[in-house]
Amino acid sequence: MLTRPEPNDDTPGHNDLSVLTVPAFKDNYLWLIHDGLHAAVVDPGDAAPILAALDEHGLTLTAILLTHHHADHIGGVATLRARFPVPVFGPRADGIEAVSEPLGEGDVVAVPGLNLELAVLDVPGHTLGHIAYVRKTPGLHWLFCGDTLFAGGCGRLFEGTPAQMAASLEKLAGLPEDTEVYCAHEYTLSNLRFALAVEPGNAALALRMRDESAKRAAELPTVPSSIGLERRTNPFLRYREPEIVDSLVAAGKLQDGAAPVEAFAALREWKNVF
């Protein structure tokens, strides 16, 4: 587990919030946002590591935040609420029975127990009701995006369409470049291997592969990343780039002259079998 304290400053409402990285299962990351006393958890697929982290750091859980309905994101909710009867924030249209505070695009969450507000975005594609949470405090931009945007990649289209996912990713790509991207899985190296296959001439991508490989060799997480880094290196934000389109055509995945959304769909289908 790694604590990521924010830099000290005297901005009103800063309140020294940190994000604690809690690994779970094979490659999930669960996120604990805390101020040293109270904590909110994002996508607690497993209760045990969250309870251990709360105990280790002397924290009291005050809220649960969910992005979508998959079991590795919600599986620990019942156990956590048995110990901490806290509100459960989550998408209003993703079929999660445990949600007590349903949310959608334009809503703002005042997180109980923390001096923290999170704006809600609808980001369908991975699931139809998937949402993301954005902190927009000047200089302290955070994104909790579940399985929509990954470091170097994006989620599979289990329910939504390529057009929906492409639009969702463009919405996230429009956030400030310094926004820290807290995605839910350690998929980065496999994502970057694919990215290099489709955009081998991207120097920023080659540098990123070197840096992220060093982190994994040292058993360090590669997330959070940043929106700026994703714009420069993530093929699912760059599917209009000529080199990526040419790679798709050369591999027989796309007809020359196809619409951009067709390039996105072909790119996602290729990644599924890469």
Rank of each mutant, 00 (worst) to 15 (best):
G75E: 12
L157T: 01
R156I: 00
F89V: 11
R81S: 03
G113W: 11
V109Y: 03
G139E: 08
E159K: 11
H126S: 08
A132N: 12
P138Y: 09
N115R: 13
L169K: 08
V134L: 14
A167D: 09
G146A: 06
L66N: 04
L118E: 05
R156Y: 05
N115W: 03
R135W: 13
L143E: 07
A63T: 00
L128G: 09
L80P: 02
H69R: 15
M165A: 06
H130N: 05
P87S: 07
Y133M: 08
G155R: 04
F150W: 06
G139K: 10
R92Q: 14
G139V: 11
I131T: 05
S168G: 00
S168T: 04
P138S: 10
S100F: 05
L140C: 13
G125T: 04
R156F: 08
L128C: 04
L149T: 10
L157Q: 01
A167G: 01
P85W: 14
D122L: 02
V99Y: 07
V123M: 00
T67H: 09
T62R: 13
N115P: 01
A82P: 00
I131A: 12
G155S: 01
F84H: 15
H73V: 05
R156A: 13
T137M: 13
H68W: 10
F89G: 09
H141D: 10
P138H: 11
P112H: 02
A82L: 10
A151F: 12
P91L: 13
D72E: 12
E97T: 11
H70I: 12
T127Y: 04
G75W: 07
S168D: 01
A63H: 02
G95A: 10
R156T: 14
A98K: 01
G146W: 08
A166V: 04
H70R: 15
